[in-house]
Amino acid sequence: MTTATDIQLGNLADERVIRLLTDHLNDMFATSPAESVHALDVSGLSVPEVTFWTIGDGDALHGCVALKELDPQHGELKSMRTDAAARGRGLGARLLEHVLAESARRGYRRVSLETGSQDFFRPARTLYAKYGFRECGPFGDYSLDPNSVFMTLELEPAASSRTA
Protein backbone atom coordinates (compact mmCIF):
# COMPACT_ATOMS: atom_id res chain seq x y z
CA MET A 1 0.00 0.00 0.00
CA THR A 2 1.45 3.35 -1.07
CA THR A 3 0.69 6.37 1.07
CA ALA A 4 1.55 10.00 0.51
CA THR A 5 3.91 11.32 3.10
CA ASP A 6 4.16 15.00 2.26
CA ILE A 7 1.84 17.31 4.22
CA GLN A 8 2.67 20.95 3.63
CA LEU A 9 1.11 24.37 3.64
CA GLY A 10 -1.13 24.54 0.61
CA ASN A 11 -0.92 27.07 -2.18
CA LEU A 12 -4.46 28.32 -2.83
CA ALA A 13 -3.39 29.59 -6.28
CA ASP A 14 -2.24 26.10 -7.37
CA GLU A 15 -4.58 24.79 -10.08
CA ARG A 16 -4.50 21.31 -8.46
CA VAL A 17 -5.76 22.83 -5.20
CA ILE A 18 -8.45 24.77 -7.05
CA ARG A 19 -9.60 21.55 -8.77
CA LEU A 20 -9.68 19.67 -5.46
CA LEU A 21 -11.69 22.45 -3.80
CA THR A 22 -14.03 22.71 -6.80
CA ASP A 23 -14.68 18.95 -6.60
CA HIS A 24 -15.29 19.32 -2.87
CA LEU A 25 -17.80 22.15 -3.31
CA ASN A 26 -19.54 20.33 -6.18
CA ASP A 27 -20.04 17.27 -3.96
CA MET A 28 -21.33 19.43 -1.10
CA PHE A 29 -23.90 21.19 -3.30
CA ALA A 30 -24.93 17.88 -4.94
CA THR A 31 -25.52 16.32 -1.51
CA SER A 32 -26.91 19.11 0.68
CA PRO A 33 -29.28 22.04 0.20
CA ALA A 34 -27.37 25.26 -0.58
CA GLU A 35 -28.27 26.82 2.78
CA SER A 36 -26.68 23.82 4.53
CA VAL A 37 -23.34 23.92 2.66
CA HIS A 38 -20.64 25.37 4.90
CA ALA A 39 -17.58 24.36 2.87
CA LEU A 40 -15.13 27.18 2.19
CA ASP A 41 -14.02 28.28 -1.25
CA VAL A 42 -10.57 29.74 -1.99
CA SER A 43 -11.54 33.19 -0.67
CA GLY A 44 -12.89 31.68 2.56
CA LEU A 45 -9.67 29.71 3.02
CA SER A 46 -7.53 32.81 2.37
CA VAL A 47 -8.42 34.64 5.59
CA PRO A 48 -5.77 35.02 8.32
CA GLU A 49 -7.55 32.79 10.85
CA VAL A 50 -7.41 29.79 8.48
CA THR A 51 -4.36 27.59 7.86
CA PHE A 52 -4.56 25.31 4.83
CA TRP A 53 -2.50 22.17 4.11
CA THR A 54 -2.27 19.67 1.28
CA ILE A 55 -1.07 16.07 1.12
CA GLY A 56 0.59 14.55 -1.90
CA ASP A 57 3.54 12.73 -3.34
CA GLY A 58 5.65 14.02 -6.17
CA ASP A 59 3.51 16.17 -8.43
CA ALA A 60 0.29 14.45 -7.37
CA LEU A 61 -1.99 16.24 -4.93
CA HIS A 62 -4.23 13.81 -3.03
CA GLY A 63 -6.06 15.87 -0.43
CA CYS A 64 -6.37 18.93 1.73
CA VAL A 65 -7.50 20.14 5.12
CA ALA A 66 -7.83 23.47 6.90
CA LEU A 67 -7.89 24.65 10.49
CA LYS A 68 -9.80 27.79 11.41
CA GLU A 69 -9.14 29.51 14.71
CA LEU A 70 -12.49 30.34 16.32
CA ASP A 71 -10.82 31.70 19.46
CA PRO A 72 -7.44 31.13 21.16
CA GLN A 73 -8.63 27.81 22.63
CA HIS A 74 -10.99 26.51 19.93
CA GLY A 75 -10.24 25.44 16.36
CA GLU A 76 -12.54 24.25 13.62
CA LEU A 77 -11.67 21.54 11.10
CA LYS A 78 -12.59 22.76 7.60
CA SER A 79 -12.32 21.60 3.99
CA MET A 80 -11.06 18.09 4.65
CA ARG A 81 -11.00 16.32 1.31
CA THR A 82 -9.30 13.29 -0.21
CA ASP A 83 -9.34 13.05 -3.99
CA ALA A 84 -11.66 10.26 -5.14
CA ALA A 85 -8.76 8.41 -6.83
CA ALA A 86 -6.74 8.38 -3.58
CA ARG A 87 -9.44 7.25 -1.15
CA GLY A 88 -8.92 4.16 0.99
CA ARG A 89 -5.20 4.87 1.52
CA GLY A 90 -5.46 6.40 5.01
CA LEU A 91 -4.84 9.93 3.81
CA GLY A 92 -7.87 11.37 5.59
CA ALA A 93 -6.58 9.94 8.86
CA ARG A 94 -3.14 11.43 8.21
CA LEU A 95 -4.65 14.85 7.53
CA LEU A 96 -6.81 14.62 10.64
CA GLU A 97 -3.83 13.59 12.78
CA HIS A 98 -1.87 16.54 11.41
CA VAL A 99 -4.62 19.01 12.32
CA LEU A 100 -5.04 17.52 15.79
CA ALA A 101 -1.28 17.73 16.45
CA GLU A 102 -1.21 21.33 15.23
CA SER A 103 -4.27 22.17 17.34
CA ALA A 104 -2.57 20.81 20.46
CA ARG A 105 0.63 22.66 19.58
CA ARG A 106 -1.35 25.91 19.35
CA GLY A 107 -2.84 25.24 22.77
CA TYR A 108 -6.41 24.69 21.61
CA ARG A 109 -8.56 22.98 24.20
CA ARG A 110 -11.11 21.88 21.61
CA VAL A 111 -11.49 21.14 17.90
CA SER A 112 -14.96 21.11 16.39
CA LEU A 113 -16.39 20.44 12.95
CA GLU A 114 -19.58 20.50 10.95
CA THR A 115 -20.31 17.74 8.46
CA GLY A 116 -23.36 16.48 6.65
CA SER A 117 -26.03 14.21 8.09
CA GLN A 118 -26.56 12.35 4.79
CA ASP A 119 -25.17 8.86 4.08
CA PHE A 120 -22.56 10.43 1.76
CA PHE A 121 -20.84 11.79 4.89
CA ARG A 122 -20.97 8.55 6.91
CA PRO A 123 -17.31 7.63 6.20
CA ALA A 124 -16.20 11.05 7.44
CA ARG A 125 -18.34 10.83 10.58
CA THR A 126 -16.97 7.33 11.24
CA LEU A 127 -13.39 8.60 10.91
CA TYR A 128 -14.04 11.53 13.26
CA ALA A 129 -15.68 9.24 15.83
CA LYS A 130 -12.69 6.86 15.63
CA TYR A 131 -10.49 9.78 16.72
CA GLY A 132 -12.75 10.62 19.65
CA PHE A 133 -15.01 13.30 18.20
CA ARG A 134 -18.49 13.25 19.71
CA GLU A 135 -21.67 14.86 18.46
CA CYS A 136 -22.47 18.23 20.00
CA GLY A 137 -24.73 21.19 19.40
CA PRO A 138 -23.99 24.01 16.96
CA PHE A 139 -20.90 26.08 17.78
CA GLY A 140 -19.52 29.36 16.47
CA ASP A 141 -21.94 30.96 13.99
CA TYR A 142 -23.76 27.71 13.13
CA SER A 143 -27.46 27.11 13.75
CA LEU A 144 -29.28 23.85 14.32
CA ASP A 145 -29.80 22.23 10.91
CA PRO A 146 -31.16 18.74 10.13
CA ASN A 147 -28.60 18.50 7.29
CA SER A 148 -25.66 19.10 9.63
CA VAL A 149 -23.90 17.01 12.26
CA PHE A 150 -21.74 18.96 14.71
CA MET A 151 -18.87 17.16 16.41
CA THR A 152 -16.20 18.19 18.90
CA LEU A 153 -13.09 16.79 20.54
CA GLU A 154 -11.57 18.01 23.81
CA LEU A 155 -7.76 18.22 23.59
CA GLU A 156 -4.88 18.09 26.01
CA PRO A 157 -2.49 20.82 24.83
CA ALA A 158 1.09 19.86 24.04
CA ALA A 159 3.76 20.86 26.56
CA SER A 160 5.16 23.33 24.02
CA SER A 161 1.81 25.07 23.42
CA ARG A 162 1.48 28.82 23.55
CA THR A 163 0.45 30.48 26.79
CA ALA A 164 -2.60 32.66 27.17
Rank of each mutant, 00 (worst) to 15 (best):
T82V: 09
G63K: 07
L144Q: 13
R110H: 04
T5W: 05
A101I: 04
N11F: 00
T54P: 01
V50T: 14
F121H: 08
F133G: 08
L144C: 09
A30M: 03
E35Y: 14
F121N: 07
N26M: 13
H62D: 06
R89D: 09
L61S: 15
L96S: 14
S112Q: 05
E102P: 02
H62L: 02
P138E: 05
R87C: 01
V111M: 07
C64Y: 02
P146Y: 13
S103W: 05
E69L: 04
H38K: 07
T152F: 14
L113F: 08
Q118T: 13
L61C: 10
M28C: 08
D57H: 13
Q118D: 14
G75E: 10
R134A: 13
D119P: 00
A124Y: 14
Y108D: 09
Y108W: 15
R122G: 00
P157H: 10
P123N: 03
S32I: 00
A129D: 01
D14M: 03
T82I: 11
D83E: 15
T115S: 10
V149I: 06
I7K: 08
A34H: 06
L21F: 06
M28F: 04
S79F: 12
E135C: 02
L100Y: 03
H24C: 12
F150Y: 12
N11C: 04
R81V: 01
M151R: 03
G58Y: 04
A104W: 00
A30L: 00
E49F: 00
S32E: 06
A66G: 11
A13S: 15
W53P: 04
L91A: 05
V37P: 02
T82S: 09
G116Q: 09
M28L: 12
D6H: 09
G56T: 03
R87M: 02
A39C: 02
S79G: 15
D119E: 12
E97Q: 14
D59S: 05
L20T: 07
D83T: 01
L9K: 08
T22G: 12
A30Q: 01
L25E: 13
T3H: 14
E156G: 05
D141I: 12
Q8I: 07
M1S: 15
R162I: 05
A129V: 06
T126N: 13
G44T: 05
S161R: 07
L153R: 09
V37F: 05
A93T: 05
A101F: 11
D27N: 06
A101C: 10
A13T: 13
E76Y: 04
H24K: 06
G90P: 04
F29W: 02
H38F: 09
R106S: 15
G140H: 04
A34N: 03
I18E: 10
F29Y: 13
I55C: 10
